[in-house]
Design a protein around this nucleic acid. Structure first.
Lengths: 351, 351
DNA sequence: CTGAAAGCGCTTACAG
DNA sequence: CTGAAAGCGCTTACAG
């Protein structure tokens, strides 16, 4: 199935020139007689030549510097913990290669901190940058500066159009909303209500949540047995009091308990409320395997969590940069990761 | 985050010996004065030395030969097509490395053919072998011979205990059955029946199907709202006539249409029957993204397919062998892949 | 316009 | 017991 690979030397021997000349042809470094050039290219094609990446890498003294700018993964927001795991995996795998990773964390509550850390990234003079564009204005500004410096950007978690980014790795938010919609449709008893709740702080990635909600509602326009009885509620500030005062009355009066779709990773807040009130019959569908969500999934309050493969987002993102920088491989621009449907029975495989 | 790596030359310079000597110490090739040896080791530890795998690989003339023994992927049984994709992916990725893959296909209907091909594998004198132990007796025999020749075996798709295999990559069949059970429970209307059908030829991997059915039934012992009303049927020979004569009467009389779980990849056979009879209301749950299954998933006859990541099975399996043979990395022995829940809305991400 | 040499970090004979 | 040299496949100056 695989033959002995042709080497530069083989090409050189056959075309009757030296390996230096072959290399010049192969890399378009000019200074080669046109006829020689053609002969070498022919032989190369004939032998089906492709360079030995191992040798290429060993030879290259190029050290690649990749900067990852991401939210602090500890404390307040455990959402980013898995993303960090992906980074650790890639570090392990790239040990043999001349790659240096610089991880810089910013406070997700604080645009100013992001700006400071963005400046730091610029000063580092990295060869490539990976980051989630959470703060729109500040992210665009960073992209502009990186563009001027000719430093490629890969986005994860979300993306901003027209920023000249090299690639994006992450969720197709509309599609994931549709998936949630279908699940809701399947598990909601006939005649019960279905409700969408957007729980998010101002600071967070609203764009994504909107698209998820959009996909969710879109599903019911074309498919499903539950055509009516849908309702959207926005809870901008995720505090338990708001949930009690704004959502609970809804549950009790207007709403015939069916399914509640929480478009963010905060389904656990609602689950806690249901737990307190003993309302296990309402189906919750949410996002992301945060510890708290998983707990309520296993306890039966949350029926499904949609997973967006956070570790693969950073892993693939860094690999894209790495291969682009070291081997000049142009990556697939939009890489939508599979949308995982996770229940209490298969959740353990995803941890 | 990562400093300049120490090289053998650095160790040599500091300990005042030549690089040859350092190498002899590092590889325990003996013939080194004890005192020299100690000095070198100290310096190596001091410098936190680890070998440069790139250089090591380039240098090594060792060509690794991995044999993959698997069913023919075309025609009759499209189940193995995805497994082949995984092999192609890994081939691509390992191009730079001195690895040769030999794929040998056998007729899944024919133990004798498997035995012949197994002998071929032995003659190849491969350094490692990957295969699915479909025929139990013949597989055990192959394992024994490979063990004597000291050739490591990695299983995929299934595994056989006490064969001294190096690793397994694949499904946790019982768990996947439980997942299917939970899905069935959630989407079955109150008061309807749930049924398990095992469709398989004698030759196929019965062990797996049994475990799936076992997991499925097990789920209802401890959980779910549908405790009774379950029924198991075995259809040893998957032909449409049998389905009409044995299963259809069941649907029509005894069985109050609810959910049917098909424990093999042949849900599409049942779906075709439902399509012919216009019975869209019965929920089908099955396995594997065969083209035919996906068609019926999108058409609404099959509600869920459970995916077992066939491409990752072969991909990871070969990588395990590769890393074991080239870098002496001991792999995780039992690698259970995540159990994917696939509906018509997220199926496209998995293709 | 072209060739020959040096070197990336490692390992393998070979000579002493 | 130890060192020096050659070579894995490639690229980068340098000399002509």
């Amino acid at each position: 199935m695989s033959w002995k690979k042709a080497r530069i030397k083989d090409i050189a021997d056959i075309s009757g020139v030296s390996i230096g000349t072959v290399d010049r042809v192969l890399h378009n470094r000019g200074e080669v007689a046109n006829e020689t050039r053609k002969r070498v290219l022919d032989v190369a094609k004939e032998l089906n030549y492709s360079p030995n990446l191992i040798a290429q890498t060993l030879r290259s003294k190029k050290r690649i510097n990749i900067a990852v700018l991401m939210p602090e993964s500890s404390g307040e927001n455990p959402f980013w913990y898995k993303h960090e795991q992906g980074i650790n995996n890639v570090i392990n795998e790239l040990v043999p290669y001349p790659v240096i990773l610089n991880k810089i964390e910013f406070d997700i509550q604080n645009e100013k901190d992001f700006e400071r850390k963005a400046d730091l990234v610029l000063k580092l003079n990295a060869d490539g940058v990976l980051f989630p564009p959470i703060f729109k204005v500040e992210s665009i500004s960073l992209c502009q500066k990186l563009k001027i410096a000719n430093i490629p950007v890969v986005f994860f978690d979300g993306f901003i159009d027209d920023t000249g980014f090299l690639a994006y790795v992450g969720e197709d938010a509309i599609r994931s909303g549709r998936v949630a919609g279908q699940l809701a449709d399947m598990i909601t008893p006939a005649g019960s209500d279905i409700i969408v709740i957007n729980i998010a702080k101002d600071l967070e990635n609203i764009h994504h949540l909107n698209n998820r909600a959009k996909g969710f509602l879109e599903y019911f326009q074309t498919s499903g047995k539950n055509k009516g009885r849908k309702l959207m509620v926005n809870v901008p500030d995720p505090d338990m009091k708001k949930i009690s005062t704004e959502i609970d009355p809804l549950f009790r009066s207007h709403f015939k308990p069916g399914t509640v779709f929480v478009s963010s990773s905060r389904a656990h807040l609602l689950a806690r409320h249901l737990e307190n009130e003993g309302l296990k019959k309402i189906n919750l569908i949410g996002y992301d395997l945060l510890e708290e969500n998983v707990r309520y999934l296993k306890a039966g309050y949350i029926k499904f969590l949609i997973g967006q493969r956070p570790a693969e987002q950073t892993y693939n993102g860094i690999r894209k940069l790495f291969e682009y920088l070291l081997f000049s491989r142009i990556p697939e621009k939009m890489e939508y990761l599979p949308i995982d449907i996770i229940s209490s029975e298969n959740v353990d495989c995803f941890m």
